[in-house]
Write a protein that binds this DNA or RNA. Structure first.
Length: 506
RNA sequence: GGGCGCGUAGCUCAAUGGCAGAGCAGUGGCCUUUUAAGCCAUUGGUUAAGGGUUCGAGCCCCUUCGCGCUCACCA
């Protein structure tokens, strides 16, 4: 390690402490109370009129000190909040007061024991009878001072450079309480999703992340290699094909929450690894899944936010059902004037789009053209929760056809805040149809080998044993957390977002 | 990958092409109820890296690195 001037000073303090027989990193902590508990115990004693002193042992990070000669005030921060400490020479003696002033720095983890009282200004405070170092901080925290405004801690000049915040997320978390809150919310969202599905008889399962054949989505995979098997493996791009195999096996309602990996570009709403929820439900269909989606997201919002309304990107969003439901064909007619049913092949749709001055890559297949249209003209307009439904068959190889309409499948995507959040369909369970779809996809994507939807023979074999009719659902958890925490960048809701390696890391 | 922008002290930020600065943090003092405590003094810089133009570059030009925004890509 290379230490800067500030750090060298603290290293000297460590030497000084050790020379005095004091261990700056003791093995045991004797902390018994959180800051919040200490305050609560004192308030209870006050309320009951007890004359008994409230004695506590608290511990936390030193966040502020106010040294005033023969007395000193300090604030420590722990997981539960902040607590003011009061040091006085009368109780501690001259040498301990000096030790506090000389050896203790902002950022150190310290332990303090004593009795609770109220200062003249009314702040509930620990009168310190004894204190010690729990863990010396060598590197100063990247933050200036705290201020309490209306009961909220405002931290001044705190770490704000996004690169530093992501590279040193530990420092970001240590210094920015609102960042810690994002990840508490994230955990609460996942916990609520589990509770919702568990209560409805879903079984949580784990399927392979390393897969010999990737599938369930159209994306370039990450490739890795198993040495002993002498075999290349892919990091999964979706869970879909494995979860549906379980329906064949008689697990009628399954879900998985986990990581997907897609070797694609990053953006404010794309990360190469992201967290996905997928569930599959026997005897459901895309309409019943739509209802369940509304119910599930309201449940999550109620539990996590205590509200069905929230602000995202300057929009007041309301999750209260029923959500708007837009037929894809009708939506496109309204937004673009193009009726996709009148243009049944690549060339005719491309021609009409060109006549309207729309931009797209030449030679794009019809399905992808339609996807471009909805991405450009519909998705950004779906601010309030909206289901877009009935997708073209040729971009939905795992969805079941709509009865009486062979070009359309029973599929919907849910949008909130102008962003795709989830994707669901009545799952295709006809193995012969499925085989035909794989072959069609093989043709459409032949030009671009990496994006090709590979044939999965074993998946077809599974389906050939008989798969119950079912509805399936996939949702990006990161995006849901973005919405519920009001962050427009996916990196804000991922603890350690990927960054390029730097030449010299300190 | 393309375009635009940014990178200055530990942190947050200043600085017409003309002496690299402030606040906080740090260091040394004073201070027995403070709370962004206060007062006095003070340390701290390869201005991301490298090259160029210029009497003179943090500032202008080129290259490289990193980050952000955006476009492309991403059913």
């Amino acid at each position: 390690m290379e230490w800067n001037e500030l750090e060298k000073i603290r290293l000297e303090k460590i030497s000084r402490m050790r020379a005095a027989g004091i261990e700056p990193y003791p093995t045991r902590s004797d902390v018994k109370h959180s800051s919040a508990e200490a305050v609560r115990l004192f308030e209870e004693a006050e309320r009951s009129g007890s004359t008994q002193l409230v004695e506590v042992i608290v511990g936390g990070r030193l966040r502020a000190t106010r040294l005033m000669g023969k007395i000193a005030f300090a604030h420590i921060e722990d997981g539960a909040g902040r607590l003011q400490l009061f040091f006085r020479i009368n109780e501690l003696g001259e040498s301990e007061m000096k030790r506090f002033a000389e050896d203790f720095d902002l950022g150190d983890f310290i332990e303090a024991r004593g009795t609770m009282f109220r200062t003249r200004t009314g702040e509930i405070t620990l009168q310190v009878a004894a204190f010690r170092m729990l863990a010396k901080a060598i590197t100063p925290l990247p933050a200036a001072k705290d201020e309490v405004v209306d009961g909220q801690v405002v931290r001044h000049a705190t770490l704000s450079d996004p690169e530093s915040r992501y590279r040193q997320r530990y420092a970001d978390l240590a210094v920015n309480p609102h960042v810690r809150q994002i990840f508490r919310t994230r955990a609460a969202v996942i916990s609520a999703l589990r509770a919702f599905l568990d209560a409805r008889g879903f079984l949580e399962v784990e399927t392979p992340i390393l897969q010999p054949i990737y599938g369930g989505a159209a994306a370039r995979p990450f490739i890795t290699h198993h040495n002993q098997l002498h075999q290349d493996l892919y990091l999964r791009i979706s869970f879909e094909l494995y979860l549906k195999r379980l329906l064949v096996g008689g697990l009628e309602r399954v879900y998985e929450i986990g990581r997907d990996f897609r070797n694609e570009g990053v953006s404010y709403k794309h990360n190469p690894e992201f967290t996905q929820l997928e569930f599959y439900m026997a005897h459901a269909n895309y309409l019943t899944v739509m209802d369940l989606t509304e119910e599930m997201l309201v449940y999550v919002a109620d539990r996590v936010l205590g509200s069905r309304q929230f602000t995202f990107n300057g929009h007041e969003i309301d999750l209260t059902p029923p959500w708007r439901r837009v037929n894809l064909r009708e939506g496109l007619i309204e937004a673009t004037g193009i009726d996709i049913n009148l243009y049944p092949d690549d060339a005719s749709l491309a021609a009409v789009m060109e006549s309207k001055g729309m931009k797209f890559k030449p030679g794009t297949a019809r399905g992808k053209l339609i996807d471009t249209l909805l991405g450009d003209y519909l998705e950004p307009t779906f601010i309030q929760p909206t289901f877009l439904y009935d997708y073209p068959r040729d971009i939905s190889p795992l969805a079941k056809s709509k009865p009486g309409d062979p070009t359309t499948v029973e599929r919907f995507e849910g949008f909130i805040g102008g962003m795709e959040l989830c994707n669901a369909f009545t799952e295709l369970n006809d193995p012969l149809d499925q085989e035909a779809r794989f072959l069609e996809m093989g043709r459409d994507y032949q030009a671009d080998d990496e994006e090709r939807h590979p044939m999965d023979e074993d998946y077809l074999r599974a389906m050939s044993y008989g798969m119950p009719p079912n509805g399936g659902f996939g949702m990006g958890i990161d995006r849901l957390v973005m919405l519920l925490t009001g962050h427009r960048s996916i990196r804000e809701v991922i603890l350690f977002p990927p960054l390029r390696e730097r030449d010299s890391e300190e």
